[in-house]
């Protein structure tokens, strides 16, 4: 496996431009969580010309709805949710500066095109490895939409949060490349 690339958030244009589909990346810094219900509200805010509850510039959004934290724990289990449910909202988030998305599963063609246009990347974390992933989450605060429960927007401080680049800023797709390599007739 290739060398792990260490990056801190917020991500810069250069950080993102240097990444290639298949790169193993370790993220440290702040991630913001949002699933489809939260995205719907975030995009509605943008449509009304209002401020988002966090600074989108260079932001990395993690598609996750954690399980409740046990007493004394920072967070419950917290693996990625399927990303295509956010496809309808992602370009809008890129327009205001979001640079990274973390989820699982293939993105729609127009989202991949938008990543090329706005210089953003899509990462995958291991779907279902939620108890393991929770270990790299150090602090969690709900910052918006508490009524959405697991789907509220959270600010997560992470250390050595492991992801792999699925779509880079050149439009490459690791799911397609990986399958191509191992396909047998």
């Amino acid at each position: 496996m290739s060398e792990v690339i260490r990056l801190t958030t917020p991500l810069t244009e250069e950080d993102v431009a240097s990444l290639k589909a298949g790169d193993q990346v370790s993220l440290t810094g702040v991630l913001y969580t949002a699933r489809d219900a939260a995205h719907k509200r975030l995009v509605a805010l943008l449509d009304e010309g209002k401020e988002l509850p966090f600074d989108a510039k260079g932001a990395v959004i993690y598609y996750v709805g954690p399980s409740p934290a046990k007493p004394g724990a920072v967070v419950g289990s917290a693996g990625p949710t399927t990303s295509y449910r956010m496809d309808a909202y992602s370009e809008r988030m890129m327009e205001v500066g979001m640079k990274g998305m973390i989820g699982k599963g293939k993105r729609a063609g127009d989202v991949v095109d938008a990543m090329v246009k706005h210089k953003a990347v899509y990462f995958a974390a291991i779907g279902g490895a939620a108890a393991l992933i929770a270990r790299s989450i150090k602090k969690v605060d709900v910052i918006a939409y508490e009524d959405l429960g697991p789907e509220a927007v959270r600010r997560m401080e992470v250390e050595d949060f492991k992801v792999v680049v699925i779509n880079d800023t050149n439009g490459a797709d690791l799911y397609e490349q990986g399958q191509e390599r191992y396909r047998k007739e």
Partner: peptide, 30 residues
């Protein structure tokens, strides 16, 4: 055969151990 695939299996084995030992859900989607 794939190194990335092997890493996934390793992570899943570790994940199931953490879940069992610490009594936390193996996946957030319960």
């Amino acid at each position: 055969e794939s190194p990335t695939g092997k890493a996934v299996f390793k992570a899943l084995l570790e994940n199931s151990k953490i879940a069992r030992n610490e009594k936390v859900p193996m996946c957030q989607d319960t």
